[in-house]
Amino acid sequence: MKRTATATTCAAALLATVLAGCSDSTGDTSGDGYGSAASSASPSKAATVDTKSASGLGTILVDEKGRTLYLFLADKKNKSNCQGDCAKAWPPLLSKGEATAGKDVDKKLLGITKRSGGDEQVTYNGHPLYYYAGDKKPGQTNGQNLDQFGAEWYVLNAKGKQVDS
């Protein structure tokens, strides 16, 4: 347990350093639009939640660009408990208004919750949705089953349930 806490602390410190050194005024550090997931700026359009097949995990939730979405076990139903440094490492999926359901996504499970700063975060089956800053391109699932910021992180399936790997 102590080793996990030390590793998590070191990983969080390293990630914060990398994120601080790579940021620019747009929040997009990659040139391909992927870095915009980590932007804390309010969105200009409604988010889209879609599905995609991921090796070893089955069909999981992604955004319109194929970027993996995660749930945080420390969250309560429709209430995010990921703020500050947590939200830098795990940027929330924000939307301007109601989110759009992609193929195989149950529109009835999509929702919006207000974050502490007033932004609207997309939820699915009551789980606030996040990206992982360690995923550098669409289709990566590097955040799966990580224990960071006090709880574990998982991808979700189309039924809104965590996928155990």
Results as ranks from 00 to 15, higher is better:
T8D: 09
Q144W: 14
D63V: 08
L110T: 12
K76N: 14
S39P: 08
P138M: 11
T141G: 02
D135H: 07
V62W: 11
G56Y: 15
E98S: 12
K45V: 09
A41S: 13
Y124V: 01
N157T: 00
S23Q: 14
T8H: 03
R67C: 07
Q162F: 04
V122A: 05
K76H: 02
Q148K: 05
S95L: 06
V18R: 06
D50K: 08
A16L: 15
N125T: 08
G139N: 10
E120A: 03
R115I: 12
V105K: 00
G117P: 01
A20T: 14
S30A: 06
G97L: 06
P92E: 03
L71R: 12
A16R: 11
N145D: 09
A11G: 08
L14H: 08
Y70K: 07
A5L: 15
A89P: 00
F72E: 00
F72H: 08
E64G: 01
C82S: 08
V49H: 03
L146M: 08
Q144G: 11
Q148E: 13
R3K: 08
N157V: 06
Q162H: 02
D135R: 06
A87W: 03
V155H: 13
L19N: 02
T113D: 02
K108I: 00
I60H: 15
G134N: 04
V122Y: 06
T4Q: 14
I112V: 10
Y70T: 04
G33F: 10
Q121D: 01
K103M: 03
S39Q: 01
V49G: 01
L69R: 04
G97Y: 05
C82M: 06
Y132H: 12
E152R: 13
V18Q: 11
T59P: 05
T113P: 01
Q162Y: 03
K65F: 07
S25A: 08
L156P: 11
N125D: 10
S165A: 07
H127I: 06
G102R: 01
P91Y: 13
K137A: 04
T48H: 02
E64T: 06
T26M: 05
Q121P: 05
D147W: 11
G31R: 06
R67Y: 09
N81Q: 10
A38V: 15
D85A: 12
L57V: 15
G27R: 02
G111L: 14
E98L: 05
K108Y: 03
K96L: 06
L15K: 08
N125Y: 15
D104N: 09
C82K: 00
Q83L: 09
L156N: 14
E64N: 10
P138G: 05
Y130Q: 03
L71Y: 07
G126L: 07
T29E: 01
N78M: 13
D147P: 04
K108T: 09
G84W: 15
A151G: 10
S165F: 09
S165R: 07
G21R: 06
L93V: 15
V62E: 11
A37S: 11
S165I: 05
N157W: 06
D135Y: 10
K137P: 03
L94Y: 03
A46H: 10
V163L: 02
A101P: 01
H127W: 15
C82H: 03
